[in-house]
Computed example of a mutant assay.
Amino acid sequence: MTDIQQPDDRHSNDPKAVLHRYLTRSRDAVLWKLDGLSEHDVRRPLTPTGTNLLGIIKHLAGVEAGYFGDCLGRPVPDMPAWYSEMMADTLEDNGDMWAREDETREEILDLYARVTAHADAVIEELALEDTGTVEWWGDAGTAVTLQWFLVHMIAETNRHGGHVDIVRELIDGAAGMRPDASNLPSNDVAYWETHQQRVQAAADHFA
């Protein structure tokens, strides 16, 4: 997709380019959290509500396909059956939030790549004031602008980005914002052990 303006052009002050850049960074961050993990680790639930890494990617693929695809009259081709069920509101609860045994890691990552590439093309094609319809938003879902879709998807991806941050840290202790900027004050294990102990001691004061 070399014909599409690169959304990571940090020198651009164009509002659409800025929003697109932040969305792209958010996508890259959630994908990075799967790097180096086993098939088991990317799938296993780490919270009582079943939060897991691969399921979050699957969910984000469905959400982007909905907002930047169907809602804007530009559906993503060849979507899996579960997506059609989700759009028809017949999918089982949380059916888009985990990977079944017959769904491979490669399939889900490829789906996310296809959906985000489709979304990038739609974002490039449309102006911020162009509109679509979000049926499940009720009366508020008429004449929704591309700008709203971008802001909503940035918020959605970053919310789940926080989830994958915590899940990855629970798996193997790996932490950080993105490969080129950890946003952490130290990588030293002893530092974090001491910090954790201080936080625990402060909490225990109120136990």
Score class of each variant (00 low, 15 high):
G50F: 02
D102F: 07
H160S: 01
Q196K: 13
D172I: 00
D41H: 04
L126H: 06
T47V: 03
L72Q: 04
H40M: 09
T116I: 10
A119S: 11
E103F: 06
E107V: 15
S26I: 08
D41M: 07
Y83P: 03
L109F: 09
R43F: 08
I4V: 15
G95F: 04
G95C: 10
T194Y: 11
D130Y: 07
E129T: 12
I154R: 00
W98Q: 13
E107T: 15
M79W: 04
M87W: 10
D89R: 08
D180N: 07
A203F: 15
E39G: 09
T24G: 05
A181N: 12
N94P: 01
L128D: 00
D96E: 14
D14T: 00
I56Q: 04
D102H: 14
A65F: 03
I4G: 10
E92W: 00
H40E: 15
N13M: 09
T145Y: 03
D139V: 13
P75E: 06
H59W: 01
D110L: 06
R105F: 12
M97Q: 10
C71D: 13
G50H: 03
N187T: 12
V134T: 10
N187V: 08
L109R: 07
T2M: 11
E193L: 12
D96N: 13
D102C: 12
M86W: 13
D165M: 04
R178Y: 07
N158D: 10
D130A: 10
W136S: 12
L109M: 08
L46P: 01
M153I: 06
V199H: 04
V164L: 03
A117M: 10
A65H: 07
E135A: 15
W137Q: 12
D188Q: 02
E106H: 14
R159K: 13
C71I: 05
M97I: 06
H59D: 05
E101C: 03
L128R: 01
D188L: 05
A113D: 05
L150T: 00
H163G: 09
L54H: 06
G173Q: 04
P77S: 05
V76Y: 00
I166C: 07
K33I: 04
E85C: 00
W136F: 14
R178A: 09
L34Q: 01
R105T: 14
R21I: 10
P185M: 01
H118T: 08
F68G: 05
H195S: 11
A65M: 02
D28S: 12
M79C: 07
P179C: 09
S182W: 11
K58P: 04
N187H: 13
Q200V: 14
H40P: 00
Y67Q: 02
A29D: 03
T47E: 01
D14S: 02
G138D: 04
R100A: 08
L128T: 05
A113K: 05
A140Q: 15
D3S: 14
K16F: 01
L72T: 04
L126C: 08
D180R: 07
Y112C: 02
V18T: 07
A113L: 05
H152P: 01
R74A: 13
